[in-house]
Amino acid sequence: MENKKIKWGILSTGWIAHKFATALQVVDNCEICAVGSRNLESALSFASEFNIPKAYGSYEELVKDIDVDVIYIGTPHNLHLENTLLALNHNKNVLCEKPMGVNEREVNIMIDKAKEKNLFLMEALWSRFLPNIIKAKDLITEGQIGEVNFLKASFCIRSSGAQQYRHFNIDLCGGTTLDIGIYNIFLSLFLLGKPDKMVAVAGLNDQGCDTNSSYVFNYGKEKLAVMYSSFLADLPVVAEIHGTKGKIILEHMWFCPGNVKLISDTGVEQIFDFEINGNGYELEAQEVVHCVLNEQKQSDKWSLEHSLELVRAMDEIRHQCGIVYPNHDL
């Protein structure tokens, strides 16, 4: 078991696929054996960059490769269902980039197919596996900041893409909620659990994509999580969790590898630093390798039910804001 290598196939050759392939270089018990693209030239270039032995000019050829154990899907949101089903129907385990589906219906279709085929399936939400996020959770569980009463999280970047770019294109399931707001929503669910109530508002472009979005989760009488995401503004991408005995601060680009600052109500400050071997994506990949080697069909750390909880929250936010994806929200 310890010497067995899980063989990966990379489906797509975009930016996120490059990040993931880079991370796989430091993951134990695995290797990349194939890459597939809709363009053979792109696949060959990617294969050359990462020393991958096989390159395919279609996704269909990739999933038919008998040597591949797991397919990593790094395509845009609107293709996740189609690409995941393609891989599962060819008996490949799947790690699908977040969001796994653009709505609960799509996620359930993927889950049902994985169960039917008795295959592993996981959403690639890398932040769940980062040590700074895990440490924040541990500090709360240990009571280091007392009773949590307020969480604030933001993810705002000014996007320079044109209106047909995926950030702003309704046909590509654009908008901030699924693309970057998902991290805020994940953090609140991960640290505080399922809220009693959600309230959301958004600014929509002419196509109906949310270019600005704000959402509040209510956790009872006084506890709130206040979150916002934007493609129109550059703001510090930070998260803070406040309690009766202190606060936890996840500094700029909090959803990435970083440190954790713990500040007591008396002003005593502690900073927790963490060493990782790569760019951070290797941690979710290592979880997949562990699960597949142990014949698990889902991760205990980021289960299929977790993915369902996340997409249900995003569905509710989109419903309240009037965000509809014409080819998906049937």
Rank of each mutant, 00 (worst) to 15 (best):
L232A: 12
Q270L: 06
T84D: 07
G14N: 12
L86S: 09
F129Q: 00
Q320S: 10
I276K: 02
E251K: 08
V94L: 07
A239I: 04
N327D: 15
Y215Q: 08
N91H: 13
E2N: 13
D329L: 03
M1A: 13
G36L: 04
K137R: 14
I140E: 12
N103F: 05
V35P: 00
G36K: 06
V226C: 07
Q296Y: 09
I182Q: 00
T211Q: 15
M122R: 02
E295F: 03
L235H: 07
K54Q: 13
C156N: 14
H306Y: 09
E142L: 10
K221S: 11
L11F: 11
K98V: 00
A225M: 11
S58G: 01
I185W: 07
V237Q: 14
E104N: 12
K261W: 04
D273S: 14
V289W: 05
V288F: 04
K117C: 06
T13Q: 14
S214R: 09
D210I: 03
E251T: 06
D210M: 12
E275Y: 13
S307G: 15
N294W: 01
G181C: 14
Q270H: 15
I185P: 04
L310D: 05
F190A: 12
L308M: 10
V216R: 11
K221P: 07
K5P: 08
Y281H: 10
A285D: 01
D65T: 05
L40F: 06
Y215V: 02
Y325T: 01
E2Y: 09
I71W: 01
D273Y: 12
M110S: 07
E104W: 05
D112T: 12
I248G: 07
N39E: 14
E309W: 11
L262M: 06
L187F: 01
E240N: 09
G36Q: 09
F155I: 07
N83A: 11
G246Q: 11
I249G: 08
F255V: 09
A313L: 08
N279A: 10
W8S: 07
A136T: 15
N3Q: 14
D179T: 13
K197N: 12
R105M: 13
V289P: 01
I248K: 00
V148H: 08
I32Q: 02
V260E: 06
A202V: 07
N212W: 13
N118K: 11
L88A: 06
T176I: 14
Q320A: 04
E104I: 08
H242M: 10
T75Y: 03
P257E: 11
K223Q: 03
L139I: 06
Y325L: 03
C96L: 05
E222L: 12
L44M: 14
D67I: 12
E284T: 11
K221Y: 10
E106Y: 02
F120N: 00
I323Q: 01
